[in-house]
Simulated assay, not measured.
Amino acid sequence: MHLAVVACGERLEETVTMFKSAVLFSFKCLHLHIFAEDQLHARFMEALESWPGFIRSRFNYTVYPIRFPSENAAEWKKLFKPCASQRLFLPLILKDIESLVYVDSDILFLQPVDRLWDFLSRFDSAQLAAMAPEHEEPRIAWYSRFARHPFYGRTGINSGVMLMNLTRMRSMFFKNDMTSVGLRWEELLMPLLQKYKLNITWGDQDLLNIIFHYNPELLLEFPCQWNYRPDHCIYGSNCASAEDNGIYILHGNRGVYHDHKQPAFKSVYEAIRKYSFGADPVSSLLAPLEEQLLKTTHTYCGKSHALFTKALVHSLAGINGKAVRLR
């Protein structure tokens, strides 16, 4: 399984914690594709190589420089957040990779990556990407209220967790509102940016929304429990799939892992960050997390604290199962 992330600025520890959650719970071997600024390369390698051997056997990794088309590199790099639009160019850079999971650095896996990877088998003959909706309720969704450009579906899509069939993305001709003929991925991106750059707020995510607005048949939606953000609980719970089965992937956007605005999100991040590989996952991760979550019930997200551990319990049981098999 291939997992890609882009890390610029002060994102090293956050990214390493994301990798920790991915490697900890997954069953198949992972190949980590790390796109990072040059000064972070050695630090990523040092962090990952410091993990114990039994963990290192579960993954390998490649570190890449940040790469944008040379004629517009500065414009792409500063779009929205530093380097965030690198994800748009993964099909053109990773030419030998068929499919991958792209995630933002502020993602935490609470279920094995394998379960997200399985969505690839649900793609029909046309679909080439999968994402979760930006919101579940159009009346309070950002895109349906404020967007000044076309967007996917009723509420738009969030690109923080994205499953990509790169082979199909490279070969597809995409419908668009700039020409009557379809354009390949590499032909589409810059004209799209030039047309909409004064009307987009969320950078590359907005460009993806425009693309899939005109090509909705190419996208598979997965439920919000696979990309659970503060928006899903900050004003009351509004992610039905998480209510039913728990949170599978936690997305701590808006910096909530590092401030005190959403302590439930920060509690999960800190529990995984502090966990030591090989320690008992129940007493060393789950128990202290549950204790911290009980201190967050003064917030709406904290009131839904059971959702943060509902799926995690099963993942931690899987860790013990892997340990038994390794012995």
Rank of each mutant, 00 (worst) to 15 (best):
A4Q: 05
C8E: 11
E10V: 14
L12I: 15
T15M: 10
M18L: 15
K20Q: 12
A22R: 04
V23F: 12
L24G: 02
L32G: 05
I34K: 06
D38T: 14
A42N: 13
R43G: 01
E46P: 01
E46I: 01
A47C: 04
P52L: 04
G53T: 13
F54M: 12
I55N: 00
I55D: 01
N60A: 12
R67L: 14
F68G: 09
P69E: 04
S70Y: 08
E71T: 13
N72A: 13
P82G: 01
F89L: 05
P91E: 04
V101H: 00
L108R: 05
P112N: 00
V113H: 00
D118P: 00
L120H: 12
S121C: 12
F123Y: 13
S125V: 14
A132R: 02
H135S: 12
H135Q: 08
E137I: 15
P138R: 08
R139A: 15
A141L: 02
W142F: 10
F146S: 15
G156N: 01
I157C: 04
I157S: 00
N158E: 03
V161W: 00
V161T: 00
L163K: 00
M164P: 02
M164E: 02
N165I: 01
T167G: 11
R168G: 10
N176M: 10
G182Y: 07
G182W: 07
W185E: 11
L188P: 08
L189V: 09
K195H: 11
K197F: 06
I200A: 10
I200T: 11
T201D: 06
D204I: 04
D206W: 08
L208A: 02
I210H: 05
I210R: 04
I211L: 06
Y214F: 15
N215W: 09
N215D: 08
E217H: 13
E217Q: 15
L219C: 11
L220M: 13
E221V: 13
Q225V: 05
Y235F: 14
G236V: 03
S237A: 11
E243N: 07
E243I: 07
N245D: 09
N245W: 01
I249E: 00
H251G: 07
R254D: 10
G255I: 05
V256H: 01
D259K: 09
H260A: 11
H260M: 06
A264K: 02
Y269N: 02
Y269D: 02
E270M: 08
A271K: 03
R273Y: 10
Y275E: 07
S276Y: 12
F277E: 05
G278H: 09
A279E: 15
S283I: 14
L286G: 06
P288N: 05
Q292C: 09
T297D: 07
T297W: 02
K303W: 03
H305N: 15
A306S: 15
S315F: 07
L316E: 07
G321M: 11
V324L: 14
R325N: 11
L326K: 10
